[in-house]
Design a protein around this nucleic acid. Structure first.
Length: 738
RNA sequence: GCGACCGUGGCGGAACUGGCAGACGCGCAGGACUUAGAAUCCUGUGGGGUAACCCGUGGGGGUUCGAGUCCCUCCGGUCGCACCA
């Protein structure tokens, strides 16, 4: 047998990457595809450290799926881009003392090189960056569509202020009271005028549509949780002075057990309900609470605090006068900012009542015995005509009874808040608004877009709550687009999640400068056929994208309401027992591995670590197993190229069909680890049976192609084929043999 | 507290609708080749026992001819949300 050349991954991979680029192998015809398949993966933010193993894991898994679909005869569009605006990039730039406008292109260049090196099937003609004015022009356009539709609203609100970022951040960016970018910096409460997107108006639809989506169940659960729908009722409590205080409750069945009321300290009726002799105590408590941040207020377990207002309201169920308190455990931004306190059946109310000696009255029991607090598995007592009913029936009855007297109405409450998109920072798209004393806030006319982010050297944020752009005087002052009078630009930039809320709409249309997306292209390619990404975006990016798409659909700009009908969440790569992150210092950069072992080996190694949708433990010992496997394939294929035609041993033929069946099913379901195991079993058997033959090897190379694309191409060519292995059809199996 | 997921050899992990537990890989042990090593190849590898055999999927209980898989319960772990009324 003639000798087989040594497998040299670097040479093989460089050769095929050049050929793919030269032959436009990865660039489908976007205008006339026969079977369009939009294979999307979550685009990266180009950090200075470069692509790490976690990114590689995600991209490899998504790329394998795209290549598999391609081999099954689809025209696969697999674009890539960079989410390069945002606080992360800007903070890093500040740290190293470089301007982001110079830093980001360097980072992108590194990412681009890494993404090419690992062999992704990317269509580089359609690369995008959110920092490109040709892109963010349309981000601003998108803002204007929402503004005109009345869905971008300016309101003064308690917001999360990160003293380190020196900007407002979204609720989603607050982690246990700390800034997600600064794990040791507590977020504070500030009241500022901000732009909000009215996502809460879509809460019901965002929730209901979840039932129509083919998504990982974990992601669905997180979104459902985040939207946080609660059914209950609003009840009205009246003060002797005539003030009506509305509370929200999910337990109207316990109305007879409400022995006091608590308002949020900022509740607008606090002043009116405060007795003269309590005024000083109330003011001082209010000041104390305002000095805290929004979030530490919400972190539980601490002692309850509060102040009696010195007045009473009437419980509409019992008719009794109950005392009114303020306490920081009641939050202004949820429900009505006021609660009826039922200490017998709510843990927080119980804690508060115990601390301040307030009465506790059982209204739910079972067999005359008290139940665990908050249990709904009992019957009503001390509840007048409703005694003896179950909690559910009694609750309905009480709401109906109180409604009839004008004291109640059923109510659905969401935990979701409106999306604050204002950022008092530099590195983002300026919000396209001009303030005019005469006309009010005016949208920048679309013909004047983009509002380019001016290049200013001193982009450092300060503590004033005013964006650095305000210091750029010639940029700041502009004529009002409506009256021509003196106007001032909005100096805030928009949240980076706005950039990423629509990028998938841009990819197929990147060459059009006169429209955000081309209607024909969009109709052909969208919604996205398959989306693969991490659950870290389950409630941020994925919810915002759904909302934006829903609005665009309503406004007639896109033909679909849900952008991602099919989504799969991949797992996390664990290293030394915890997930890879810069703060833990366990980030692994793939470059050295790829240099030593080759991209194909590294791709397969990552996929072999564990189930793709669950993640895996990164240790570098196991990589030799994959390399040994690829070496065996290499030798087998070279020998097959020189073999004479002989019948395939029956055992090998049977195993081949079983392997095709298993690899097909497993690749479809992203069970890449077991697909690889099946190919290993097949190769082991083929070697045992000395089946170094074309019929044995050619189908294997096609099965292998999504996983190790360079090697598959090389060996396919060695077997005498002159066209890419990716133009072949995925092998079929004989069900009788498999 | 609420929601989701998970627990299988020394390690990563297999096991479709309940049907031979431990595929595949790492590691390890022995052997072949070699002056020697590396690489490669072969054999073995859940625990106990000389053996036929016995015991084994976090603990306990249950359903079933049959349970890693289904049900109950307890223990342990991961992730998300959280003074959300």
């Amino acid at each position: 047998m003639a000798s087989v050349p040594t497998y040299d991954p670097a040479a093989v991979e460089e050769r095929w990457q050049e050929r793919w680029s030269r032959d436009h192998t990865n660039e489908p015809d976007l205008d006339r595809p026969s079977r369009p398949f939009y294979n999307l993966m979550m685009f990266p933010y180009p950090s200075a450290e470069g692509l790490h193993v976690g990114n590689m894991f995600a991209f490899t898994g998504a790329d394998i799926y795209g290549r598999f679909k391609r081999l099954q005869g689809h025209d696969v569009f697999e674009p890539i881009g960079f989410d390069a605006f945002g606080i992360h990039s800007e903070n890093y730039a500040l740290n190293v003392g470089l301007h982001p406008a110079r830093l980001i292109p360097q980072n992108i260049a590194t990412f681009r090189r890494q993404l090419k090196r690992f062999g992704g099937m990317f269509d580089w003609r359609h690369e995008l960056s959110t920092t490109d004015p040709r892109y963010y022009r349309w981000t601003q356009w998108l803002f204007l569509q929402l503004f005109r539709a009345g869905l971008a609203i300016r309101k003064k609100a308690a917001v999360n202020w990160c003293p380190a970022c020196k900007t407002v951040i979204a609720n989603e960016q607050v982690i246990n009271g700390y800034c997600e970018r600064h794990p040791d910096v507590k977020v504070e409460q500030r009241f500022l005028e901000q732009w909000f997107f009215a996502i809460t108006r879509y809460a019901e639809r965002l929730l209901a549509n979840l039932d129509t989506l083919d998504w990982s169940s974990s992601t669905i659960a997180m979104q459902r949780n985040w939207i946080g729908r609660s059914e209950g009722a609003e009840l009205i409590f009246e003060a002797p002075s005539g003030e009506k205080i509305t509370v929200f409750t999910t337990r109207p069945d316990t109305a007879f057990g409400a022995t006091y009321m608590v308002l949020a300290p900022e509740h607008p009726l606090v002043d009116a309900l405060t007795a003269v002799e309590q005024r000083q105590a109330v003011r001082s408590y209010q000041r104390e609470v305002a000095a805290q941040d929004l979030v530490s207020r919400k972190v539980g377990e601490k002692r309850k605090t509060g102040v009696f207002l010195g007045s009473y309201v009437r419980n509409p169920a019992t008719g009794e006068a109950i005392p009114v308190w303020i306490a920081d455990y009641v939050l202004m931004e949820y429900g009505t900012g006021a609660i009826m306190a039922v200490p017998a059946h709510d843990q927080r109310d119980f804690d508060f009542a115990t601390q301040f000696g307030l009465p506790i009255r059982q209204v739910v029991q079972r067999d005359g015995e008290p139940l665990p607090i908050e249990s709904q598995d009992g019957i009503l007592v001390h509840s007048g005509q409703f005694d003896g009913l179950s909690c559910v029936e009694g609750g309905k009855g009480i709401v109906a009874w109180l409604s009839g007297r004008g004291f109640a109405s059923p109510r659905v409450q969401y935990r979701l808040h409106d999306w604050c998109i204002s950022r008092q920072r530099y590195w983002g798209p300026p919000i396209p608004i001009i303030y005019c004393d005469r006309c009010g806030p005016q949208g920048v006319p679309e013909r004047d877009l983009p509002v380019e982010l001016p290049l200013i050297e001193d982009f450092r944020p300060d503590d004033t709550g005013v964006s650095p752009l305000a210091r750029h005087r010639e940029w700041y002052f502009v004529p009002c687009p409506t009256c021509g009078g003196e106007g001032r630009r909005e100096t805030d930039v928009s949240d980076t999640f706005l950039d990423s809320s629509w990028y998938f709409l841009r990819y197929p249309s990147t060459e059009f400068d006169d429209r955000p997306w081309d209607p024909a292209r969009t109709r052909t390619w969208l919604p996205v056929t398959s989306y693969i990404g991490g659950n870290e975006h389950a409630v941020l990016h994925l919810l915002y994208s759904r909302f934006v798409t829903m609005v665009l659909h309503e406004l007639g700009h896109v033909h679909f309401e849900e952008p991602f009908p099919k989504l799969r969440a991949h797992g996390l790569i664990i290293k030394d027992g915890s997930k890879m992150s810069k703060s833990r210092g366990n980030v692994v950069i793939p470059d050295a591995f790829i240099k030593k072992w080759g991209a194909d080996t590294f791709r397969m190694y990552l996929m072999f670590l564990g189930p793709f949708q669950e993640g895996g433990d990164f240790r570098d010992e196991g990589i030799t197993g994959i390399r040994r496997f690829l070496d065996k394939v290499w030798v087998l294929a070279h020998e097959a190229a020189q073999a004479t035609l002989e019948p395939l041993p029956a055992a090998v033929a049977r195993k081949l069909h079983q392997t095709i069946r298993k690899v097909t099913a497993d690749t479809e379901s992203l069970a890449y680890n077991t697909a690889i195991a099946a190919m290993m079993e097949y190769v082991n058997l083929a070697r045992e049976e000395n089946a170094a033959q074309r019929e044995a090897v050619e189908p294997l190379l096609v099965l292998l192609a999504p996983y190790a694309p360079h090697m598959a191409e090389e060996l396919w060519a060695q077997l005498g084929h002159t066209t890419s292995v990716f133009r072949v059809r995925w092998p079929s199996y004989d069900a009788a043999l498999a």
